[in-house]
Computed example of a mutant assay.
Amino acid sequence: MVRFSNNVIGLLNFLTFLLSIPILVAGVWLSKQGATECERWLEKPVIALGVFLMLVSLAGLVGACCRVSWLLWLYLLVMFVLIVLLFAFTIFAFVVTNKGAGEVVSNRGYKEYRLGDYSNWLQKKVNNTKTWNRISSCLHSGKVCTEFQSKFLNDTVTQFYTEHLSALQSGCCKPAEECLFTYENSTSWTKPGNVTSYNNPDCDAWNNNQTVLCFNCQSCKAGFLQNFKTEWKRVAVVNIVFLVLLIIVYSIGCCAFRNNRRENWKGYSR
């Protein structure tokens, strides 16, 4: 029973070490084969995660199974910092994603999204040109509007207005309702000739070119943030479960550390 906690920590860290190998390989593959800005953007975080998991799991494995107390102490310190950071990140993410929601449009099956409805921190992030260029590159490579066009291309204007569009489709693939553009097809709209200026800058940003559309619009950024909020709700559940597991592993690790010190002390006493 004395060695039970050490064996559990050793087994968990061995499994984590095995997990770190494909993650590290995936990061190296992205750095060599990544064709899009989105893929290249992911390479460094993936490699860093793989290296981090590998080093931490080795420290825990050797510390628990070989009774190297200083390594196990280092492992527990990293785990404690990770728990604190993960808890702080969870709270922070809930705070910054609390604001913002789509606006219901009369006689439409979809909602419209405005950037000003979301938190200032998120607005600042998507308004950064470098950051938004990376995000829009991901949206392009994800074929958000390409699939949108093929799905709704044959819709009449009445049919299109009843479609239930996602936040990204509504914000990035069509102009805002207040622009009063004339519908031709799902991604082709005609600007009214009697309007010289718009209150909404998105109206001027719209372009029927399939590589442009409304990817530079404020509504597209708002649609992205709404999609981020929706995904965060799903991630939050996993995040909380992961946090609970980390706390359990940390507790077992503390038991293993006490076992190491007890057995080392017995060794010195002899």
Rank of each mutant, 00 (worst) to 15 (best):
F14E: 04
L15A: 14
L15E: 11
T16G: 01
T16A: 06
T16M: 05
T16V: 01
T16W: 03
L18N: 09
L19R: 00
L19M: 09
L19N: 00
L19V: 03
L19K: 00
S20V: 06
P22R: 09
I23R: 02
I23D: 02
I23T: 12
I23C: 14
L24M: 14
V25Q: 02
V25W: 01
V25K: 01
A26M: 10
G27Y: 00
G27K: 00
V28Q: 04
V28I: 15
V28M: 10
W29A: 14
W29C: 08
W29H: 06
L30Y: 06
L30I: 11
L30P: 08
S31E: 12
S31L: 11
K32F: 10
G34I: 07
G34M: 04
G34K: 06
G34Y: 02
G34D: 04
A35G: 15
T36E: 11
T36L: 03
C38K: 14
R40A: 04
R40C: 05
W41D: 12
W41S: 15
W41Y: 13
L42H: 03
L42W: 07
E43P: 04
E43Q: 14
K44H: 04
P45G: 13
P45L: 05
P45A: 13
V46E: 04
A48M: 09
A48F: 07
G50L: 12
L53F: 12
M54F: 15
M54C: 15
M54R: 05
L55E: 04
L58A: 07
G60T: 04
G60W: 05
G60C: 04
L61F: 15
V62F: 15
G63P: 14
G63C: 09
G63H: 09
